[in-house]
Simulated scan of single mutants.
Amino acid sequence: MDILFHVGTAAGGRLLYPLLLAAGRAGCRVGAFFTHEGVLGLRDTDLAAALVEVERAVVCEESWHRFLPGLACPVEAGSQTSNSALMGEARKVVSL
């Protein structure tokens, strides 16, 4: 994976969508990990649709249940262990 976007803030979720589009145009292989308030960005249907095209998109299951209880998660549920593995696979990490 070329770039892992680590989304930990609500504002980061808003920034991710245009970054995913730009990375796609550049031919980058990308992934995303959502934690803490960053999970709120997954309510954006455009972002959720764009994440289908990435190599891997994972949400911290604890954060999902804390901030969006009762909603269906549009990406893979994981843990901070998943986060560590993704960071190890990425050539670059961009924290949002």
Rank of each mutant, 00 (worst) to 15 (best):
I3D: 04
F5W: 04
F5D: 02
H6V: 01
G8Q: 15
A10I: 11
A10E: 15
A10H: 14
A10L: 13
G12F: 10
G13Q: 09
G13P: 09
G13S: 10
G13A: 08
L15R: 15
L16P: 00
Y17H: 15
P18Q: 04
L19N: 12
L19F: 13
L20G: 04
L20R: 04
L21N: 12
G24W: 10
G24E: 14
R25N: 12
A26K: 15
A26T: 09
G27C: 06
G31P: 03
G31L: 02
G31T: 01
A32Q: 00
A32D: 00
T35N: 10
H36K: 08
H36T: 10
E37R: 12
G38Q: 02
L40E: 14
L40I: 14
G41M: 01
G41A: 03
G41E: 03
L42V: 00
L42H: 00
L42M: 02
R43K: 13
R43A: 13
D44S: 05
D44A: 03
D44Q: 03
L47H: 06
A49N: 04
A50F: 02
A50R: 04
V52L: 07
E53H: 08
V54Y: 00
E55Y: 04
R56G: 04
A57Y: 01
C60D: 15
C60T: 08
E62P: 07
E62D: 12
H65L: 14
H65T: 14
L68A: 05
P69V: 04
P69L: 05
G70M: 03
L71Y: 07
A72K: 06
A72E: 10
A72T: 10
C73G: 01
P74E: 01
P74K: 00
V75E: 00
A77G: 09
A77L: 14
A77T: 12
G78H: 03
G78Y: 01
G78A: 04
S79W: 05
S79V: 05
Q80M: 15
Q80N: 14
T81P: 06
T81W: 10
S82Q: 09
N83G: 12
L86K: 06
M87W: 11
E89F: 07
A90P: 08
A90E: 08
A90C: 10
R91T: 12
V93I: 14
V93N: 07
V93T: 11
V94S: 09
S95R: 13
